[in-house]
């Protein structure tokens, strides 16, 4: 019984961190139509910047803000120089996927070249609490609090600024959206930056727990991409729910089988959904002909 509670608790915490990646990935994919696998590069870049700045002795808050700023600049450059011109030329989405992979390769290898490929750890004192037999580390509490805070800010932020309506308009039909006065270039850049900032937060939350190495962004991004295909609706609540459920599923497999099978089985679900329910498990209700 205790072990089940422990797995559920761990899944909620890591699912919440995953959902930060998912929200960014899903919004970017739906709004800009780019299957942005370079999100993994941004995740890694932000985490490495955070590690480097704290290593230099900066306060963690300042280090985080610097990491976010650097990542935002890079993503803005990518959007303006690569993605936007490609979309404007009506490039096939699978070709933009290749461009994104190329960008990922460049970012990750640049990081590996300058900082080495070994695992970098941010030293922090970890305390462990025990509540009703469930072991909770201080890092998990930080992840839970920061994760919830970011999700809430994002949810109400886009609602109150009416950004969500613009996002949905551009996601649905960017030409119609522009006709009705939505500045699609601005909305695209904005969601890219917001998504990247959230990704960097997810990266920092992961780094304080298990450290960071150049290639560790890909796995979490692929899982986030899986959720983005399962849930095609731009709805934060469903994205968080499915992220947590998927993490629970993975942790259960990890407990009963081993950690390598969890990826295989996750992607088996993805393959089945792509083949038999391409519009996703949670999608908008479409009027049938």
């Amino acid at each position: 019984m205790e072990i089940i509670l422990q797995i559920v608790f761990n899944s909620i915490v890591s699912g919440l961190v995953l959902s930060l990646m998912v929200i960014g990935f899903n919004y970017i994919f739906n709004v800009t139509k780019v299957f942005h696998l370079a999100h993994a590069g941004i995740f890694t870049l932000g985490s490495f910047a955070f590690w480097k700045f704290t290593d230099l002795g900066l306060h963690w808050l300042l280090a985080s803000i610097l990491a976010m700023s650097i990542s935002s600049l890079i993503i803005l450059l990518i959007e303006k120089a690569i993605y936007l011109p490609m979309i404007r030329k009506n490039t096939d989405p699978s070709v933009t996927l290749i461009a994104s992979m190329g960008l990922y390769v460049i970012i990750v290898n640049l990081i590996a070249m300058f900082f080495g490929s070994d695992n970098k750890i941010v030293s922090s004192s970890v305390n462990i609490l025990e509540v009703n037999g469930i072991i909770i580390s201080t890092n998990q509490i930080i992840q839970l609090l920061v994760g919830t805070f970011v999700v809430v800010v994002f949810y109400f932020g886009i609602k109150l600024t009416k950004l969500d309506i613009s996002l949905k308009a551009i996601a649905d039909n960017d030409i119609l959206g522009e006709i009705y006065g939505v500045n699609s270039k601005r909305v695209r850049s904005l969601i890219m930056i917001i998504g990247s900032i959230i990704a960097v937060i997810a990266g920092i939350l992961t780094t304080i727990e298990i450290g960071i190495e150049p290639h560790s962004g890909m796995n979490v991004t692929l899982t986030a991409a899986t959720v983005a295909i399962l849930v095609t609706r731009l709805d934060v609540k469903y994205l968080i729910l499915v992220s947590i459920l998927l993490t629970l599923f993975q942790n259960t497999i990890e407990w009963f089988l081993n950690s390598q099978w969890k990826e295989g089985l996750t992607f088996l679900i993805l393959l089945m959904v792509i083949l038999y329910k391409t519009e996703g498990l949670v999608s908008y209700k479409l009027r049938k002909n």
């Binding site: 490609m86 992979m101 190329g102 960008l103």
Partner: peptide, 10 residues
């Protein structure tokens, strides 16, 4: 390699 790839698809 990544750079050439990105430039080509771009």
């Amino acid at each position: 390699f990544g750079l050439i790839l990105v430039l080509i698809v771009r």
